[in-house]
Nucleic acid binder design. Structure first.
Length: 579
RNA sequence: GCGCCCGUAGUCCAGUGGAUAAGACGUCAGCCUCCGAAGCUGAAAAUCGCUGGUUCGAUUCCAGCCGGGCGUACCA
């Protein structure tokens, strides 16, 4: 048995993060070693064990299942092993003893550790000092990760579904970045192919119509009013140049114009939603640079692509897909899949070690084939991850709203932002796991009342700002923001220690969120922190006659304010000073 | 048929191997001469879809079934 060395330094007043779990783990290892040396335990084997935080306070701050998982190895009842370890710990001499109030055996053999108040106080100082950096982690070790999301075709405005994808992708990017990854956010523009051609046709027909020509408008064209607006814009800018051209010349011109206009609108909408991409990547550029053709040639040479029925097929079946997929149709046109192969290959060539795509759940059938292309390009399957965001059901008064781009009947993301507000919309989208479908009731979301959870959390921030301003007026503090705090040892109320425990857990939640790629972990965390704060606020006054105690409490609430702000910012939600 | 996601209180959901299943909405009963009541306290409400299996231990993992959503194109 080779337990890690116990730290010799006290965590108090140091800049080192007090990592309780590691310390407790070390104590357990050391105790097991002692017990073995004294002949109490029969084996020095250390099994897979965990240090966890129990759900109930009555079960202590930390607990370990060491005794239970050791039962087989030691051939002893878990309860006896636990008792032996505790005796061993009591005879040990270690610094952390000061911070551990008691250790006891409970339930089926858990060893529960109860920490003293002063073990928690240093966190408040740490938060004040680290400020916007508190909660950050080095977990990612600078690994280059790309998160690609939204990537909606520039054939129409963004709708609610895109909003959920945007909120998820942006937050995942923020969280990974905060967790120490080197993140790039990217939008893939499908500015090539049939849909763009259809867009051009739609606009061109409307243009002809305005010129007084009789037209028949095909079913597969886009019917929304925005198409007419685009046609009018063309008239304004280009006069009659487009409409008088022959069809083959005019349609691509219209397509290009329309796509650029729409993309501009998409960028504006996303900016209004607080989403800024590091890069906008054009599908057409993959054709222009010859990358699509190159990868097809290369894969053909490797017999990964073969010809049949006049088309070219990629052997995705060899990589676990249900069937092989077409990359070049028998009419000579490439499929979307062809450029996607080139695109994903290019991502890794740019140096990303991990590539994360955020897709709507209706695209789940594409995962296997893209994965196949990634593996065929010499990357590992684990380097490609897809976040599948389940669909949003838009409701109005509890009834589903029919939406389609083609028919032109939809509620745009912009509509929602205008009516609900960016913060409320983003918070709503991230309120639950994207593994579940989301019912988005417009009438409910439009309500600017207290039913909206975003106010619950933002209110904490505003409330604390109010307290700090008042404290400043009274001369208790010099600035609304400060880095150090006196008298922390005066924080002894159950609610105060409870609050600090939640604050101390922020980093772990960030890591959990980054590991699982689930932003709603942060949402849940913020709700519990907000709840704990509101409870504390109602029970205790921060500013009291006791100036020394007040100072300590001001430090605590400022720490809460900072963590709320840091957490909200990961979700792309602002933390207002007043509401 | 096959594939992916989901099935936890009246409703919406968190929890993914451990000890008393968390929260919100709704319902009921309370709290503002006092740092912001967009808040707080308390109560009632869940055989964790069903059946097996793995495990000392399963809401959590595995299999089968049932129910819901979404896919299943030489569309994107």
């Amino acid at each position: 048995m080779t337990p890690p060395d116990l730290p010799r330094k006290t965590p108090l007043n140091t800049r080192i993060k007090p990592d309780m779990k590691t310390k407790i783990k070390n104590i357990v290892f050391k105790a097991a070693q002692n017990a073995f040396e004294n002949g109490v335990l029969s084996s020095d084997q250390i099994p897979e064990m965990e240090i966890e935080q129990p759900k109930h306070i009555s079960q202590g701050d930390f607990s370990t299942n060491f005794a239970m998982v050791s039962a087989g190895i030691q051939k002893m009842a878990p309860g006896k092993i636990a008792q032996a370890l505790i005796s061993s710990m009591e005879s040990m001499d270690y610094i952390e003893k000061d911070y551990i109030e008691k250790i006891e055996v409970a339930g089926p053999g858990f060893i529960n550790f109860f920490l003293s108040n002063k073990a928690w106080h240093p966190f408040v100082e740490q938060i004040l000092e680290q400020d916007t950096e508190f909660g950050a982690s080095t977990m990612g070790k600078g690994e280059k990760v790309q998160v690609e999301f939204v990537s909606a075709n520039p054939t129409g405005p963004l709708h609610v579904g895109h909003g959920r994808g945007a909120a998820v992708g942006d937050s995942v990017g923020n969280i990974l970045s905060f967790a120490g990854f080197d993140v790039q956010k990217e939008y893939y523009i499908n500015d090539s192919g049939r849909q763009i051609r259809t867009l051009g046709t739609s606009v061109w027909l409307r243009l002809r119509e305005m010129e007084g020509h009789g037209i028949s408008f095909p079913d597969d064209c886009y019917k929304g009013d925005y198409i007419k607006d685009l046609a009018e814009k063309i008239l304004d800018k280009e006069g009659k140049n487009f409409a008088t051209q022959d069809e083959e010349t005019a349609i691509p011109l219209c397509a290009r114009f329309a796509a650029q206009e729409i993309l501009g609108g998409i960028k504006d909408d996303l900016a209004g939603f607080g989403v800024i991409f590091d890069q906008w990547f054009s599908e057409q550029s993959l054709y222009d640079s010859g990358r699509v053709q190159n990868v097809i040639d290369e894969f053909k040479a490797k017999d990964l692509i073969y010809e049949a029925d006049g088309a070219l097929w990629f052997r995705t079946k060899d990589f676990g897909d249900e069937k092989n997929r077409v990359v070049v149709r028998n009419n000579g046109l490439t499929t979307y899949f062809a450029s996607d192969i080139a695109y994903h290959r290019e991502k890794y060539e740019r140096g990303f070690h991990r590539v994360i795509d955020v897709w709507g759940a209706d695209h789940h059938g594409y995962i296997k084939r893209i994965d196949a292309s990634v593996v065929a390009s010499g990357r590992k399957s684990e380097q490609f991850e897809v976040i599948l965001v389940q669909l949003v059901n838009l409701l109005r008064k509890g009834k589903p709203v029919q939406m389609s781009t083609r028919s032109g009947e939809f509620v745009t993301l912009k509509d929602i932002i205008d009516e609900v507000g960016k913060d409320a919309a983003r918070f709503m989208f991230l309120s639950r796991s994207y593994d579940s479908g989301l019912d988005f009731d417009l009438d409910l979301a439009k309500q600017k009342n207290s039913d909206n959870p975003v106010y619950y959390v933002q209110y904490v921030h505003a409330r604390i700002t109010g307290i700090l301003l008042k404290a400043m007026e009274q001369g208790l503090i010099e600035e609304i923001d400060f880095k150090t705090c006196e008298n922390l040892e005066l924080l002894t109320a159950t609610e105060e220690i409870g609050l600090i425990k939640i604050l101390a857990g922020f980093t772990e939640q960030v890591e959990k969120s980054a590991k699982t790629l689930h932003p709603h972990v942060i949402y849940t965390y913020l709700m519990s922190l907000a709840s704990a704060f509101h409870g504390y606020y109602n029970k205790h006054k921060v500013i009291t006659e006791d100036k020394e105690l007040s100072k300590a409490r001001l430090g605590l609430v400022l720490a809460v304010k900072k963590v709320i702000r840091n957490g909200l910012s990961l979700l792309g939600v602002t933390a207002p000073e007043r509401m």
